[in-house]
């Protein structure tokens, strides 16, 4: 059973490596969105330092949401998704594999890139650490929760926009604790409790979201 999980991750990673351009679009989107804010608000470092956690987090959230649409759509189009539903493997396990591969390709680069963007906003060293840590805990949760929305909107006309409408409200707790962790660290309060909440959300969504996603995929292939 675990073999199937490993193979599905390997398969998706192999495919992603063979079309590398897709990885960079998400990352570039993230960089552009975050760079837009100083242009809209003004270059005063005091203001920027204040909004840095929120801006970087919202940017990461939007980027990971945009990438979500692709998580099942290719498999849906070429028929591999219906085959996945017909294997003796538990579908939720295969979903975990797909989400994990998707996160490694689209989420992890965001985490790696975030400190550079934080520097643009003159974030302090502890703040940068908290930013990376919070994104490391938060973005997988975003991918897991978002996968439900991606499965529900699979093959629908207004897929992308609808996906945003369904998923963004569910992202709010992750955003609050994620940006909150950075902010609390910067202001010297310590972000541990925020990070603990993020970890709890990650565990909770790891348990529940794949089940809901599997159910949604069955409905979508009906």
């Amino acid at each position: 059973m675990l073999e199937a999980l490993i193979w599905i991750i390997r398969r998706d990673l192999t495919i992603a490596m063979r079309r590398r351009a897709d990885i960079f679009t998400t990352l570039i989107f993230f960089v552009i969105v975050v760079s837009l804010f100083p242009l809209g608000i003004g270059p005063e470092l005091d203001t920027l330092r204040l909004i840095a956690p929120g801006v970087v987090w919202v940017g990461a959230l939007l980027a990971s949401m945009l990438a979500l649409e692709q998580i099942f759509s290719a498999d849906h189009r070429d028929g591999t998704l219906e085959q996945m539903l017909l294997t003796p493997q538990p579908v939720s396990l295969l979903v975990v594999g797909k989400v994990l591969a998707h996160w490694l390709v689209t989420g992890l680069p965001l985490v790696v890139m975030a400190p550079l963007l934080g520097l643009q906003y003159d974030l302090s060293w502890p703040g940068l650490q908290a930013l990376v840590l919070s994104l490391l805990l938060g973005t997988p949760a975003l991918s897991l929760i978002g996968a439900i929305g991606a499965a529900l909107t699979l093959g629908l006309r207004s897929g992308g926009v609808l996906l945003a409408l369904l998923v963004l409200p569910l992202y709010i707790p992750v955003l609050i604790f994620g940006a909150g962790a950075v902010e609390a660290t910067v202001s010297g309060l310590g972000g541990q409790s925020h990070l603990a909440m993020l970890a709890a959300i990650l565990v909770g969504s790891l348990v529940l979201a794949p089940v809901a996603t599997a159910a949604a995929l069955r409905v979508a292939e009906d």
């Binding site: 529900l152 569910l170 707790p173 604790f177 909150g180 959300i201």
Partner: peptide, 20 residues
Amino acid sequence: ILLLVGVVNIPIIYYSVQWW
């Protein structure tokens, strides 16, 4: 499915907003 996901999330959302 969306409704059930939503109803599980409402307490978490409410709590996080309170915290915030």
